[in-house]
């Protein structure tokens, strides 16, 4: 451990550029899964809060399963199961795609509950006021409920994003080309696992910490009032 500074001095100019390049892949996975998770989450949150029993049940089942499974298991099922069940040409199904879908499915379940509590947190009076002005429930949801709910859910969504960033490391376990995977190659190629993994930890930290501070700032601003 005391040798770390000298190890870094020797290798870092080789490691860092490559690792930072794979950071972009990590950020790309994070970004695309985030969008997918928000879309899925919003859809199931609306199902969960709708007045149709069937939609509610479908949402509950989806959320319970996707939240109850470890992310690794979801990734493995998403990436390995379809090509095995339906034989054919699967070359287009990259690890990136598998990673994004897997993370999106898991994230969708988490965000569905976040959005739901945001929607339910609003005072019943808001919906009533909208309805008494002649809005249909759909319009009330679109112009009055959701805009306010989005503001409330910003901190939990921020926290989810930070978790998502860290979870991209799990995609290395299905072979996705991102930071963790590259770290493993370098670590064993140069026989310096401790140095490399500590460096990679620092890189993840450098990416997540600013987000953390951002979320905390948002939470502070929201509790004081707009």
């Amino acid at each position: 451990m005391l040798q770390l500074p000298s190890i870094y001095a020797e290798y870092i100019h080789r490691w860092l550029p490559e690792l930072l390049y794979y950071c972009l892949a990590t950020l790309a996975i994070t970004g695309v899964s985030f969008i997918l998770a928000v879309a899925i989450g919003l859809f199931f949150a609306l199902c969960r809060t709708s007045r149709y029993r069937l939609l509610q049940t479908i949402a509950i089942v989806y959320i319970e399963i996707a939240r109850g499974l470890p992310i690794v298991v979801i990734l493995y099922i998403v990436y390995f199961a379809p090509p095995q069940i339906w034989p054919g040409d699967w070359k287009w199904f990259t690890t990136f795609l598998g990673a994004v879908i897997g993370l999106g499915i898991h994230g969708g379940a988490i965000l569905a509950e976040v959005f739901r509590s945001g929607i339910e947190a609003l005072h019943k009076g808001q919906r009533e006021a909208a309805l008494t002005l002649g809005m249909t429930p759909a319009k009330a949801m679109m112009y009055i409920i959701l805009p306010q709910a989005m503001r409330i859910v910003l901190p939990p969504v921020g926290n989810y994003t930070i978790g998502l960033l860290k979870d991209t490391a799990l995609c290395s376990l299905i072979g996705a080309n991102e930071l963790m995977n590259d770290a493993k190659s370098i670590a064993f190629a140069d026989y310096q696992p401790m140095a490399v993994f500590v460096l990679v930890a620092a890189i993840y930290f450098a990416m997540s910490y600013p987000l953390s501070l951002g979320v905390r700032y948002m939470e502070a601003r929201m509790s004081v009032g707009r």
Binding site: M180, A183, A201, Y209
Partner: peptide
């Protein structure tokens, strides 16, 4: 809290032998 658990486990398993 700011780094993935996987990395932490790797540091301990692969890194500690170094020392």
């Amino acid at each position: 809290r700011g780094t993935p658990a996987l990395v932490q486990v790797f540091v301990i398993y692969f890194g500690l032998p170094d020392i």
